[in-house]
Design a protein around this nucleic acid. Structure first.
Lengths: 124, 124
DNA sequence: CCGTATCCTAATGGATACTG
DNA sequence: CAGTATCCATTAGGATACGG
């Protein structure tokens, strides 16, 4: 198996790439992007479809994504208000590496659970 | 561009895959795995090479990785003590999706910074 | 050298109530 | 409907000191 070494800069304390990684390495971000990869969604749809997210965190995460240029927020001037969230072109490019990672998680969930089991037993 | 939809289960509140994602979606985990992909390291090496990590967080993150079966911890019985950390076979399999994500981050750092700039100017 | 233990602060994030 | 505002509990995580 070939191993790709990361660029050195990542390991320096103030590396900007680390800031970008922090953006992605978020509990909710991954899930939101995963949903939007399927097509635009309204606020309430996202809220309903993502189990356990609070309104506050949904708003906050969407704002970050918008700020970082991964998500486009569109407000339709009507009553009641209608707001749609969609991935930007840049946002779409992250889907592939992200789904690869999630696939890995799904494929290895059992192996990891087993490892945790063994670890717990070993330290008892 | 083809978009892969995530499995539905991920969006349920107590989905075990989300726990696995949380494992990876950590500030330090990514960097540690990136270093170990290159070969085994000692504690002090990791501490030196990862800028800004505290001893506490390094220990904590390494324990998690060991617990999850991604990292193998080997203690050599000698004085002064020598402890080596290496990726397990499972740990190696995550390198590819992880480096893909980090590559994405490095390729898009400028676009994201620019987007943040525009966002800040628009809201002033 | 490789940790653990303790203390302490800042940030996270849920619950709830209220608004255009 | 799509938020904002406020309060509050929990946690994350740095600094420091100490131990095998």
């Amino acid at each position: 198996m070939e191993i790709v070494t990361l660029s050195r800069g990542v390991y320096e304390a103030n590396c900007p790439t680390r800031h970008v990684l922090d953006v992605i390495a978020d509990k909710w971000t991954t899930l939101i992007i995963g949903l939007l990869a399927d097509g635009p969604r309204r606020f309430a749809e996202l809220h309903r479809q993502i189990g356990g997210i609070s309104q506050k965190m949904l708003t906050q995460t969407l704002r970050s994504l918008e700020r970082d240029g991964l998500v486009q927020r569109t407000v339709y001037a009507q009553v009641p208000p209608r707001v749609e969230y969609a991935l930007t072109p840049m946002g779409q490019t992250i889907c592939e590496p992200l789904t690869a990672l999630i696939s890995w998680a799904e494929e290895n969930i059992k192996a990891i659970t087993d490892a945790q089991q063994r670890y717990a037993e070993a330290s008892s």
